[in-house]
Design a protein around this nucleic acid. Structure first.
Lengths: 230, 230
DNA sequence: GAGTGGTCTAGACCACGGT
DNA sequence: CCGTGGTCTAGACCACTCA
């Protein structure tokens, strides 16, 4: 009982909860009790229970003690996939090609999504992502040149636009939304699928501090699924 | 400098990273250095840096030190939405109706998805979720009666199948996959949309220990988007 | 081998929130 | 009030991994 690590204790307590030893909403023992039971210090138990709280398994309140969450909050944590990694992890050769690259005034809907003042110039790109030379995803992207003026000179032959931006504007918030889209004429042609086919689609706007950096829409080839565990 | 908490230090270091004080891939100071700099113990710095590692901001290696992630791992964390809550948070009245409820032998594909031995009986349900009496989502669900035999007697008038299962089989792993689907005849009729429309679709299999509990597919009404922040 | 992170401990004090 | 979790400390030992 003395080789107790905070991870081991966390797993042990989680197992006891899952097994039904305590029911939903039940109060479970306090830190000192667990410390005595597992023969370790309270600090270690504290870490274990805090981790379980982060997992959403338990709720903790001072004086109120620790209780099993009445309705487990099913939190999913998954990495937003990077297309290159997705393709390579499937064992295919990855390639990408910029099909169009222009400087334009963005459409009105984009002005509100990206909070652009009137007259802001944007770069507009269309790219195709290939897996073993087969279309994997099609990308439409706007880049806010007020935030990232150097993008106009970016060399996108060695790095994709996404990778270039990540390297240049490191950490940012992002809004993501997932949806299903019917393929229009251009998408059908680009992805070599039937017009009207249902595509899994990811929209993503990223921000550096309070300024928008880029908004992209990624249309995955037909049949693509985004899978993860909870 | 002596009111240093692990959260405060975490925020301070994160700010210094975001501000560009250290670049992508750079080695940042060690725990003892930070402890001296912020006037706190190494333990506290350790917690702060471990938290940053969980956030995906830094990578840590023994002997190798702590460095800013070369390519930030954009981790998304979001709650798998419960349909009732989605509808209610949009300000609509929620209702659900079970349209079909049978005991059947599952199709072959399900036998492998849910790891069912041959001959396992399952409950099959079709339900519609309504927002202000308009179709919001259509659900097909299989329940493994070997794992949850009491489901045959479940009263699904007060609780939805999902809520009943969550209350009865508390904590479970789950596999989720998101995709786009074309509406077939039944879906088009149920959701009152055009045949072939692109729908956002969520498949979810949940497990209790090593046994499958249920597999459901949720077809959202046309135009639905799942949004979250990273 | 030596430097770094990973972890545990025992004790201490604080902050919150039911009673 | 007082019990509970939240946190910090100082020191210690271990484990990994790079040079």
């Amino acid at each position: 009982m003395n080789n107790a690590t905070h991870q081991g204790i966390r797993d042990a307590i989680r197992t006891r909860i899952v097994s039904g030893e305590w029911k939903l909403g039940d109060l479970i023992p306090g830190e000192v009790d667990f410390a005595a039971h597992y023969g370790c210090s309270r600090t270690t138990v504290n870490r274990a229970l805090q981790a379980l709280a982060e997992e959403g398994i338990v709720e903790r309140k001072r004086k109120g003690g620790t209780r099993v969450r009445p309705m487990p909050a099913p939190q999913a944590q998954f990495r937003i996939p990077i297309v290159r990694e997705q393709v390579e992890s499937l064992g295919h050769a990855y390639a990408t090609k910029v099909l169009k690259r222009e400087i334009e005034l963005p459409p009105l809907s984009l002005r509100s999504d990206m909070q652009l003042p009137a007259g802001t110039q944007c770069a507009y790109l269309e790219s195709i992502h290939l897996a073993d030379d087969q279309p994997f995803a099609f990308e439409r992207r706007w880049v806010n040149l007020a935030t990232v003026p150097s993008f106009v000179d970016a060399n996108l032959h060695e790095l994709s636009a996404n990778e270039w931006l990540v390297k240049t504007v490191p950490f940012s918030r992002g809004d993501v939304s997932l949806s299903g889209t019917s393929a229009d004429n251009q998408l059908a042609e680009m992805l070599q699928i039937q017009n009207g086919a249902a595509l899994f689609t990811m929209d993503r706007t990223t921000w550096f501090e309070d300024r928008s950096v880029t908004r992209m829409t990624l249309f995955y080839r037909q049949g693509y699924r985004l899978s993860f565990e909870i």
